[in-house]
């Protein structure tokens, strides 16, 4: 078996998600090559070559790939990938854009957003927004797969010494062109995609007290959310709501402050990797899903939390 991993990067640095995808490739087993396609990607290729478990790094460096246009990249990946048993990439927006196009060009099915590898042709993936988990078997000779990066622990970024090979394949489909881009400007990340979320519930008592959470969020680089009870009570606007009728989030770290943990809220955050609950009611249901629970008065605990984090994070 031989696996081609499409690196995720921004032309200057390799995104960590690539290391998670290599981990998924290792779980399948076989030789792992990484394709770095972009423009002026020398540094990215070198970073990829150092990743643990990588056999060879293939580099396609051309202006046609500079903006990761799916029309161009998919032709490249389909051509390079047809010699492999698996083609993997991260289920980020770039991977989601390109890979189905690759699959269609190869006339094979795609398995999206896998969270576990059962065997070389059998994968586990969430369906119905994570409310059901399907195990699927792919029968095509080439398996095109996107990987949910957070579901796999990354391989080490250092220590590998893969060879780097330049490819001279230029695919410009001539169907699309890059016009512009706008990076999210907010100091705080978007709630739906933030790596850390700190949310307040009715225990916050009023909207002003959410400032305490914002200060913690600033230290952590986190987004601030709220439970429906806090939104219904008028503490904060509706777009901060996490839960069944609000946003569904799955950050690395979710800190629930003064949130009782009604199922409507859990429905929006229980896929988070690590959940922390701070609540003075030790019977609150939130503790049943929390990895770390702190039974405390939030008005004492949160300022202290901020101070301690300040020490650790700065």
């Amino acid at each position: 078996m031989s696996i081609l991993v499409i690196a995720e990067h921004d032309n200057s640095s390799l995104k960590q998600a690539t290391l998670n995808v290599v981990a998924a490739a290792k779980a399948i087993g076989g030789d792992i090559d990484v394709l770095v396609a972009g423009e002026n990607v020398g540094a990215v290729a070198e970073a990829a070559a150092k990743a643990e478990g990588v056999n060879k790094v293939l580099v396609a460096d051309n202006a046609a790939y500079g903006h990761f246009l799916a029309e161009n990249l998919s032709e490249l990946v389909a051509e390079v990938g047809k010699g492999y048993s698996h083609i993997l990439t991260s289920a980020g927006t770039t991977g989601k854009d390109i890979m189905p196009r690759v699959a269609a060009l190869l006339d094979v099915a795609q398995v999206s957003d896998i969270i576990r590898v059962e065997s070389e042709d059998t994968f586990v993936r969430p369906i119905y927004a994570g409310n059901a988990i399907a195990t699927v078997k792919a029968s095509d000779s080439i398996k095109v797969v996107t990987v949910r990066p957070t579901a796999f622990d990354p391989v080490a970024a250092e220590g590998g010494s893969a060879s780097i090979e330049q490819l001279d394949i230029v695919k410009d489909a001539g169907l699309s062109s890059f016009v512009g881009e706008e990076k999210a400007q907010s100091d705080r990340p978007d709630l739906a995609s933030a790596g850390i979320v700190i949310s307040g519930g009715r225990g916050m008592q009023n909207g002003d007290n959410f400032k305490m959470l914002e200060q913690v969020a600033d230290v952590l680089g986190a987004a601030v959310g709220a439970s429906r009870a806090a939104v219904d009570a008028g503490f904060v606007p509706n777009d901060m709501q996490v839960g069944q009728t609000g946003k569904i989030v799955a950050p690395q770290l979710y800190v629930a402050v003064g949130i009782s943990g009604a199922i409507q809220h859990l429905a929006g955050m229980s896929d988070s990797k690590v959940i922390v609950a701070i609540n003075k009611d030790e019977e609150a249901p939130i503790f049943q899903v929390a990895d770390y629970g702190l039974v405390a008065d939030l008005f004492e605990a949160i300022p202290e939390f901020e101070q301690e984090l300040d020490k650790v994070c700065s």
Binding site: R202, Q205, N206, D232, A233, G234
Partner: peptide, 17 residues
């Protein structure tokens, strides 16, 4: 029936949803 935001007493909350 919940405590008011400012702790000044109780209020009657309707969760119509």
């Amino acid at each position: 029936v919940v405590e008011k935001d400012d702790g000044s007493g109780k209020k009657f909350q309707i969760n119509a949803q």
